[in-house]
Design a protein around this nucleic acid. Sequence first.
DNA 1: ATGGCCTGCAACGCAGGA
Length: 256
Amino acid sequence: MKIATWNVNSLRVRLEQVLAWLDAEGPDVLALQETKVANDSFPVDDFAERGYRAVANGQRAYNGVALVARRDPRDVTSEIADFADTERRVIAASFGAVRVINLYVPNGESIDSYKYRYKLEWLAGLRAHLAREIEAHEHCIVLGDFNIAPEDRDVHDPAAWAGHVLCSEPERRALRAIMDLGLADSFRLFTRSERCYSWWDYRAGAFRRNRGLRIDLILATPALALTCTACRIDMGPRGAARPSDHAPVVAEFTIP
DNA sequence: ATGGCCTGCAACGCAGGA
């Protein structure tokens, strides 16, 4: 199974890029975030023409997630159990033996914002939910835009970002608590090199200068992590005309 | 050295992202 995550920052604007990328890469599953499109406007036909089904949890203007896959999704859910979230940030489905949970974690804005408190509450609710999902499914992939750089080596300038939203210690603790459920960061199973990022600000020539953060992650339960053969960040689309500010991240597993 | 953008909505300026 080849699975990818990509925050597209508006599926409407990025549709042709996403379709071209699907044609070129042919993943089995593509998890999208920030689709910013209502479910009844989701371009299912464009994906169907390429042999992909799509399930979406979206709304106009903000947020929105979707799963695009070659196989029929089973047991589709869009909720964090026991946590009221109306912001369209989660969609999960099963493909064969693999449970896929696609997340768009709240940004948080800044550490003194009410949105930051909400981010931490959301992550605590998510952790309890994921504990049950992992209990129920041996093969779980939790992926998406986490809006947290796990460690300083995932940050182009750790000193400048220290304590700021996306890098603050409470956020990192919340992420570690989730990973301590037994989830491995696929990218770090392979890549020891520094200066690997998945998001670059649109401003200040950040991509050209590789001033980025690695905040888009593909996490896997132990049984799945054992079958992971690769994880890479595809910088191609970020360098295209009118890009998303995020790059796709792709992982491959030998499980079918 | 510094700061430099993009999207959507609805209106010509915000809110929000990260």
